[in-house]
Amino acid sequence: MPDILTIARQFIEALPFSRALGMQLTEIGAGSASIEMPWDARLVGDPATGVLHGGAISALMDTASGAAVMSHPAAPISTATLDLRIDYMRPASPGQRITARAECHHVTRSVAFVRVVACDDDSARPVAMGTGAFTLDRPKGGAS
């Protein structure tokens, strides 16, 4: 039987936009997930420096957050972003992969509150941090 990481990885990598950005799920827990995105010249925002565009990093952070919600023990059948706020602390170092790690720090019957941090190789100095609210659609008739 394939393990949960394999199933979750296939799920994320089947999303067309996540696949186009080269996202790879590296860790999935009970309400947490890490996703990596390699540096790619097509995703650059500033060609003079090779720094990735904030939008590509936002996309990675949104995907990691959604994966964290889906992995929550409440076993949601689906999720959608209600809102996401991202603080960009510094430019991502050119050529380095970005890893976003998201965690549901609280869930209610219908909403998951998520925190997400994006780092390049220097994991002590995050590139961006975000907080989001996500819908949590529970299976019908399931425990609440």
Partner: peptide
């Protein structure tokens, strides 16, 4: 696309 079953645009596309 981010959600192929609906289908819906990826939230990251909208944000970008």
């Amino acid at each position: 696309i981010g959600n192929p079953t609906l289908p819906a645009l990826h939230g990251g596309v909208t944000a970008s």
